[in-house]
Design a protein around this nucleic acid. Structure first.
Lengths: 204, 204
DNA sequence: ATGAATATTGGACCGATGGACAAGCCGGGA
DNA sequence: TCCCGGCTTGTCCATCGGTCCAATATTCAT
């Protein structure tokens, strides 16, 4: 458990990664889906065409994904974070920095190179003006926690993932979700997301 | 050096912050500009009207700023990060969590509550126009039957309902659906409907 | 004709989901 | 102080959803 894995298509290894984490093992992208376990720390190279999908899949399995690029840039950083990665770093960073990244990401933190961070945040900030509160129409009938659960689920998260994000048990997520279904008159999570999507487009 | 400071207008102290950091001292917002030094760790309450400006000033002095709010929300989180804060957290978080936040932010990391993180990153990403694949594009990768099943499921039907509609077995629906998931790189029907919804709004 | 892709179905397996029934904790109001 | 609504967790259980291993038939291209 808690394995440290280096996922890359072409590159066999990264010396500084090994010096920072002697236990690191290298696996192929297509091996990743079956070899990765919850809590594993994944260093994912961007040398595979489908690395965002792979990142999303690994993140969904509650692995801690850090994307490594040989040519870091803003767009790729955002893609990585959107794909569930907890970090985005230059592949040839010093081992001390890699250790720092691991420390941060292992504690619910996000690590992005300082020069990219400001851009990421800036972009997010400037784009917030338009579509801030979309689906609060029917959500107003819900309590705060029910709303939080509903939104998490409507974003495609599983009950387990929603539980982890809200720091409650899966059982509590089910309780809130059941209340949401009852109040909104929908039968399951699919109907919920469709309902919210429909209202979202009405506002927009 | 490396002082831990709690900056708040009204609130005298936060018990859990003290238990996490016994050395923390409380100062007023107007004292902050002169008392803060490089490397200091600042816990900044949002109970002052000009807290974003204050955060920016402290960040410019290379202090590590974590914004604390009694009612965390997406807009405020973005405001905090845009103002140079390294973290944004609920003011009444457990002391263990506060310790984690300090650990992350002290190591170049960014800390945002899990439920807000996805939104912040998501907003940033969608504003960049990072999508390449249009709806026809992704659906064209599917066969005719796969597309029919995908659409039925994306409209909220269960496998059983989709089977009845297409006059095939539920088992066959599962088979096609599995192929759809594999080709589109999604893990389940929720991700599918979200994918199609996202692409749909771009076309519209 | 032979192989590749597609469509269909079966069985089995197991995790995810939603409901039913119960119950403890906490904060605010009567 | 007592009550109530919201938040939290538990167990049990039926169903749904997704995947793996096959199998058969059809079409199309080489």
């Amino acid at each position: 458990m808690m394995a440290v894995l280096f996922v890359s298509q072409r590159r066999a290894e990264i010396p500084r990664l090994h010096s920072a984490f002697p236990d690191v093992r290298r696996i192929n992208p297509d091996q990743a889906r079956v070899m990765v376990d919850s809590g594993d720390r994944i260093w994912l190279m961007t040398d595979h065409p489908d690395w965002p999908a792979l990142s999303g899949m690994l993140a969904a399995q509650e692995a801690i994904v850090v994307v490594m690029s040989l040519a870091p840039n803003e767009a790729e950083a955002l893609k990585a974070l959107q794909a569930g990665a907890r970090g985005y770093v230059h592949a040839l960073s010093p081992s001390e920095l890699l250790g720092q990244v691991a420390l941060v990401t292992s504690n619910q933190g996000v690590w992005v190179p300082a020069e990219l961070l400001s851009k990421v945040v800036g972009v997010a900030f400037t784009s917030l003006g338009g579509h801030e509160s979309l689906p609060q129409e029917s959500l107003s009938a819900l309590t705060e926690r029910e709303r939080a659960v509903a939104l998490a689920v409507a974003e495609g998260r599983t009950n387990k993932e929603a539980a982890r994000q809200l720091d409650i048990t899966e059982r509590t997520v089910k309780a809130h979700l059941g209340a949401v279904f009852r109040k909104l008159g929908v039968r399951d999570r699919m109907q919920l997301v469709l309902r919210l999507a429909k209202q979202g487009e009405k506002v927009a």
